[in-house]
């Protein structure tokens, strides 16, 4: 009895507030737009009995998904989200790897402090960390003032409201997610392996390529997925730093829902985004499982 209660409470909670809402999204994505509230048809009417359910089912169609393929706004947004997520993941890896490497090579007594310094920004508000860059990147912002002052440029650079600002925002906010798994992998790495490679005639650089990188592969893969997956559906960064010119699907979904009030299309956008995300999520799970098995 107690066991039943223990399982049932969290189970029912998740069914009611995770699975059911998700089925509703799926259902509305197959419905038609209507100008009432809720703005879609058909609505399921149980009081009409079997006839009602049949009518309801015949009212569903794939029209919204067809619409997504016809209007090039949507596939452009998906494509540009994928590109932005890919490029910023690569950039985060380039910035994060040397930091993780430096941490793993730092004296033992520093490491706890360095670790805390990496985690600290993670506890600070995401919104505030993105906001901080507006003041830096804007035309009369701190960066431009500094560059003008040094004489490196004589015209302020336009960075805010471009894709570059979005890349900077994603790298900045997701950097801890990249550093931590790579650091964990490098920390476990047996240093005598590198020494052995060097003794056997490898240069430092080739020992790094041939030994360190392959042995930290799991950390790199985990870090990349941890950045890529949330970056793909990102809303806050493109809407604050990207300006109107940057298309990302999270922003499109938001506007479809709040500005256009087209719920069926917004739901269809969400379903397609999830379908795209399934691939990296499954790959990520597999990587984690392999790692867990390797550790045993």
């Amino acid at each position: 009895m107690r066991r039943f209660f223990l399982i049932a409470v969290p189970y029912l909670w998740l069914l009611a507030l995770f699975l059911v809402p998700f089925i509703i999204v799926l259902k509305i994505s197959l419905s038609d737009t209507a100008l009432a509230i809720p703005p879609y048809t058909p609505t399921l009417d149980f009081s009409a009995g079997w006839q009602g359910i049949k009518e309801f089912l015949t009212g569903l169609d794939l029209e919204n998904f067809v619409w997504l393929t016809e209007d090039d706004l949507y596939w452009k947004a998906y494509l540009s989200s994928l590109m932005i997520a890919l490029i910023s993941t690569a950039l985060t890896l380039l910035v994060g790897y040397p930091i993780a490497y430096g941490m793993a090579r730092a004296p033992e007594e520093w490491r706890a402090t360095l670790m805390m310094l990496i985690i600290l920004p993670f506890w600070t508000s995401f919104l505030i960390r993105v906001y901080a860059w507006i003041g830096i990147l804007s035309q009369e912002g701190v960066l431009n003032q500094f560059l003008l002052w040094t004489g490196l440029i004589d015209q302020p650079l336009i960075i805010l409201n471009t894709k570059i600002a979005v890349y900077i925002g994603i790298v900045y906010t997701y950097l801890p997610f990249m550093i931590l798994p790579i650091y964990a992998a490098l920390d476990r790495l047996d240093e005598s392996l590198i020494e052995a490679a060097e003794d056997l005639g490898c240069s430092r650089l080739s020992a790094f390529w041939l030994v360190t990188i392959p042995l930290s592969r799991n950390g790199i893969v985990a870090g990349c997925f941890l950045v890529f997956i949330p970056a793909l559906g990102e809303f806050v960064i493109p809407s604050l730093l990207g300006g109107s010119g940057t298309l990302m699907i999270g922003k499109v979904l938001w506007e479809e829902f709040f500005s256009n009030r087209d719920w069926p299309v917004a739901s269809a956008v969400a379903i397609v985004l999830l379908a795209i995300l399934v691939i990296p999520i499954v790959l990520f799970q597999r990587n984690q499982q392999k790692q867990a098995e390797a550790e045993q």
């Binding site: 399982i7 969290p10 189970y11 998740l14 069914l15 507030l17 995770f18 699975l19 059911v20 809402p21 998700f22 509703i24 999204v25 509305i28 809720p38 997956i229 949330p230 793909l232 559906g233 990102e234 809303f235 999270g250 979904l253 938001w254 829902f257 719920w263 917004a266 739901s267 969400a270 985004l273 999830l274 995300l277 999520i281 990520f284």
Partner: peptide, 26 residues
């Protein structure tokens, strides 16, 4: 059950938000 525990961790926030709103309205 385990799927429902792990899925929200990787679900984009816009989708979680949208689906819950549609539930509450429903």
């Amino acid at each position: 059950f385990s799927g429902m525990i792990y899925a929200p961790l990787v679900m984009p926030e816009v989708i979680t938000g949208l689906s819950l709103l549609l539930l509450f309205i429903g």
